[in-house]
Simulated scan of single mutants.
Amino acid sequence: MSDDSTTTIRATFKTREAADLAIEHLVQQHGISRPDIFVQPVASENSTGSAPSGGDVRRDGDVRTDAPLGGEIEVSADIASQKIAAVQRSFGNLDAIRVSGR
């Protein structure tokens, strides 16, 4: 008999770039549908993360000052229980700060 239960898994990332990669891994490697994935700032205000990355960093190394670096980004999704370990590994490979499931 297979286990049909699902678990909400959450991971926190320092950058929007890492959060975006986590979403792509959930979709492409783990077969999670995009509408089942949620992204939000951890703090109450909008944020692109707590560290500059991607488009926030210019070629010369200067950092944009208009991007709201106010806190981490949380990615969450309901996943099949048998995928928990694989998803946790993916998040860990992407330098997740925290990973939790409930």
Results as ranks from 00 to 15, higher is better:
residue 49 G to T: 03
residue 19 A to S: 06
residue 5 S to T: 09
residue 9 I to N: 10
residue 15 T to A: 06
residue 4 D to T: 06
residue 32 I to C: 07
residue 50 S to C: 09
residue 6 T to A: 10
residue 45 E to P: 02
residue 48 T to G: 08
residue 70 G to R: 14
residue 33 S to I: 09
residue 42 V to T: 02
residue 24 E to S: 12
residue 38 F to V: 13
residue 20 D to F: 11
residue 17 E to W: 13
residue 64 R to P: 02
residue 10 R to E: 14
residue 67 A to I: 07
residue 12 T to Q: 11
residue 27 V to S: 08
residue 42 V to F: 00
residue 68 P to D: 07
residue 11 A to S: 13
residue 5 S to H: 12
residue 37 I to T: 05
residue 19 A to N: 00
residue 63 V to E: 03
residue 32 I to H: 04
residue 52 P to I: 02
residue 62 D to K: 04
residue 30 H to Q: 14
residue 50 S to D: 08
residue 67 A to G: 05
residue 37 I to R: 01
residue 2 S to F: 14
residue 40 Q to A: 15
residue 70 G to K: 12
residue 64 R to S: 03
residue 44 S to K: 10
residue 35 P to I: 03
residue 62 D to V: 00
residue 18 A to K: 10
residue 12 T to Y: 07
residue 60 D to T: 01
residue 39 V to T: 09
residue 37 I to A: 01
residue 26 L to K: 07
residue 44 S to W: 01
residue 13 F to I: 08
residue 35 P to D: 00
residue 57 V to C: 00
residue 37 I to L: 00
residue 40 Q to P: 07
residue 48 T to M: 14
residue 13 F to N: 01
residue 31 G to E: 05
residue 21 L to A: 14
residue 37 I to W: 00
residue 49 G to P: 01
residue 31 G to D: 05
residue 27 V to M: 15
residue 9 I to F: 08
residue 48 T to E: 09
residue 22 A to Q: 06
residue 47 S to D: 01
residue 36 D to Q: 10
residue 53 S to R: 03
residue 5 S to E: 11
residue 12 T to M: 10
residue 16 R to K: 12
residue 5 S to R: 15
residue 53 S to E: 05
residue 4 D to H: 10
residue 24 E to A: 12
residue 9 I to Y: 09
residue 56 D to M: 12
residue 21 L to E: 10
residue 8 T to Y: 13
residue 43 A to H: 05
residue 35 P to S: 01
residue 7 T to K: 13
residue 11 A to N: 06
residue 7 T to M: 12
residue 9 I to Q: 11
residue 45 E to D: 11
residue 43 A to L: 10
residue 35 P to K: 02
residue 6 T to M: 09
residue 61 G to F: 03
residue 19 A to Q: 01
residue 30 H to I: 03
residue 69 L to V: 05
residue 40 Q to V: 11
residue 32 I to D: 06
residue 67 A to D: 07
residue 24 E to N: 08
residue 27 V to K: 15
residue 29 Q to G: 08
residue 25 H to A: 15
residue 23 I to T: 11
residue 16 R to Q: 15
residue 30 H to N: 12
residue 36 D to Y: 08
residue 28 Q to D: 09
residue 57 V to D: 00
residue 27 V to T: 14
residue 19 A to C: 04
residue 61 G to Q: 06
residue 55 G to F: 11
residue 40 Q to T: 12
residue 42 V to R: 02
residue 68 P to M: 07
residue 68 P to F: 02
residue 11 A to Q: 03
residue 44 S to A: 14
residue 64 R to E: 06
residue 14 K to Q: 11
residue 35 P to Q: 02
residue 46 N to G: 09
residue 18 A to M: 13
residue 48 T to L: 13
residue 21 L to N: 13
residue 41 P to Y: 00
residue 4 D to I: 02
residue 48 T to H: 09
residue 11 A to R: 06
residue 31 G to M: 01
residue 54 G to M: 07
residue 59 R to F: 06
residue 45 E to T: 07
residue 21 L to D: 11
residue 16 R to P: 05
residue 53 S to T: 05
residue 61 G to D: 04
residue 68 P to R: 02
residue 52 P to T: 04
residue 18 A to G: 05
residue 40 Q to H: 11
residue 26 L to A: 04
residue 62 D to T: 13
residue 53 S to D: 13
residue 27 V to P: 02
residue 15 T to V: 03
residue 35 P to N: 01
residue 33 S to C: 10
residue 10 R to G: 07
residue 13 F to H: 00
residue 13 F to S: 04
residue 57 V to Y: 03
residue 26 L to R: 08
residue 47 S to L: 00
residue 55 G to K: 13
residue 14 K to P: 04
residue 17 E to L: 12
